[in-house]
Write a protein that binds this DNA or RNA. Sequence first.
DNA 1: CACCGTAATGTTATACTATAACATTAGATC
DNA 2: GATCTAATGTTATAGTATAACATTACGGTG
Lengths: 171, 171
Amino acid sequence: MAKPPASNQNGFPPARHDHARCVARALEQAEGICAKRSAQFTGLRRQVLGIIWNSHSPIGAYEILAALSSRERRPAPPTVYRALEFLQAHGLVHRIESKNAYIGCAHLETAQHAGQFLMCRACGQTAEACDKDLSRAIQKLAEKSGFSLEEQTVELSGLCPACKSKNRHAA
Amino acid sequence: MAKPPASNQNGFPPARHDHARCVARALEQAEGICAKRSAQFTGLRRQVLGIIWNSHSPIGAYEILAALSSRERRPAPPTVYRALEFLQAHGLVHRIESKNAYIGCAHLETAQHAGQFLMCRACGQTAEACDKDLSRAIQKLAEKSGFSLEEQTVELSGLCPACKSKNRHAA
DNA sequence: CACCGTAATGTTATACTATAACATTAGATC
DNA sequence: GATCTAATGTTATAGTATAACATTACGGTG
């Protein structure tokens, strides 16, 4: 059994952690998930997922495109968007609507779920929460409104613990 | 004292309601709010707000631009985006991130607040909620994570009560 | 193994969303 | 009415996303 991913209880990764493990773990899990569904986890898709997992901050489609490019190879936008579509469909990445950007799913063990994101405006690091109480409150609001809930976007912006304390120490 | 805006308890406007009253009320309140802050509620800004309030569905910037255009007058995008910027800054409209679109604020009496939106995927109608329990759950999640919350995006998509019952009768 | 059909990727063009930078006009203040 | 600032106009361009069609790679079948 693989060790759990490096992260504090608060969902934000420690400032210094073995990030290679985060990436390797995500790719492994993705591979397993795709195999189970006989979905093709192709080289391109793996590469894009790797690029996305390169950091814990959401990354834009055109940044991915740039990372994918080299002297010999210069893919066009649809290449990236199609890979993203696949990865999103299988719950391997989430789209951050308020940033037009994409981030790797941090809860691959939880089948199809709507993410709740805590995004630091200073360092960009983004934690994915899966808060029961929050989910329940959303579900209740929907019920109360006679609304049949299908999808949800919950994106919270502010300062992560690390940047908050940095700020405090500064002026 | 003006009558409250037409709406069911669930936040969605009744299928048939005196929509002219919604618009008039929004414009009046906006006028008051701007006056209080000595912000200029110019003709253009009033016109854009009126276009946005023309329906209870979010509207895109370029749709607003089209509505603003005529044979004699054909404004450029910045005209609309600047008006939107002003209206957002004063809490008169909200941006719906997941749709790149804008909707009139339905809670002008509540000073600067983050909206919670219930968006019908069938008819587009969007209700703005201000759910205490949901807000509390979000705040709690932030605290638990040591996160200093500044802004939030909560956008729920699904079927509104009316479309839900229509769907049930069909099929 | 050769064939076929489908899924994936490549390629070109274009649509949609948003802003930078500078010019002009309109309003407030004195 | 001169002057200063806020608002709007104008031109150009950046950034995000998809449509449509061509080609390639892959899995199954005879």
